[in-house]
């Protein structure tokens, strides 16, 4: 990581506690991702999303993968086909980073990248998860969505602090302040994906 950061003149932070997303930013910068914060795939021209995934030495993903923020309002005309989740996941460049605890940030390494199209069987499950989650949001039951909702896709709060609030739809149909939430891919999705395409390190 020190090599890569050095090439683009970036200093490697001590750790990621105050620099969440730093790995992803480095990868985007080096590889020339151009979408920035737009609601579009990172490599907008070729429609490929970049996802860095921290993994341990055995190739096991260490955390769920952020997909995109979930809209709390105006969902009535949204379909899976037009959803940002599908747009983001249709073609993904997966970039695993060996990042198990104990390895200093500067010494972490990129593992083998994979550019993969959404597998039809996975897509069917993701679509079903998305529909279930979005329906609960639409019906004002966002607070009933837990970490166990969704088989491959889940919805979790995402904000710099627990005090941040955005407009959502409440149980009675009125706008209510709610925590911003985002879609995440569960670790077993990425684990299966890597196992499907790579030889994983022996334990």
């Amino acid at each position: 990581m020190a090599d890569v950061a050095g090439r683009i003149g970036l200093e490697v932070p001590e750790d990621l506690r105050r620099h969440k997303g730093w790995l992803g930013h480095v990868a985007e910068w080096v590889l020339g991702a151009d979408a920035g914060s737009k609601p579009a795939p990172d490599f907008e021209g070729i429609g490929v999303e970049l996802k860095t995934v921290p993994i341990d030495a055995a190739g096991k993903p260490l955390e769920s993968t952020y997909v995109c923020l979930a809209t709390s309002t105006n969902l009535h005309d949204r379909t899976w086909e037009t959803s940002l989740v599908r747009k983001k996941l249709a073609h993904v460049m997966w970039l695993p980073v060996v990042a198990q605890p104990g390895i200093p940030l500067a010494e972490r390494r990129f593992a083998r990248a994979l550019i993969a199209e959404l597998d039809p069987a996975d897509e069917a499950i993701l679509q079903s998860d998305w529909a279930e989650i979005v329906e609960l949001i639409k019906l004002g039951m966002v607070e009933a969505i837990t970490g166990s909702t969704g088989e491959l896709l889940q919805l979790r709060p995402k904000a710099a602090s627990g005090r941040v609030r955005v407009d959502g739809i409440g149980e009675d149909g009125f706008a209510v302040p709610t925590r911003p939430r985002a879609f995440y891919l569960r670790t077993h999705y990425t684990r299966q994906l890597f196992a499907r395409h790579f030889a994983l390190p022996s334990r």
């Binding site: 309002t73 009675d172 009125f174």
Partner: peptide, 19 residues
């Protein structure tokens, strides 16, 4: 029905205040 009423009320989310 909760679904029907919720849909009607939430259509007005930008137009009506809570209550």
């Amino acid at each position: 029905d909760r679904t029907v009423t919720h849909a009607i009320v939430s259509s007005y989310v930008e137009h009506l205040t809570r209550g």
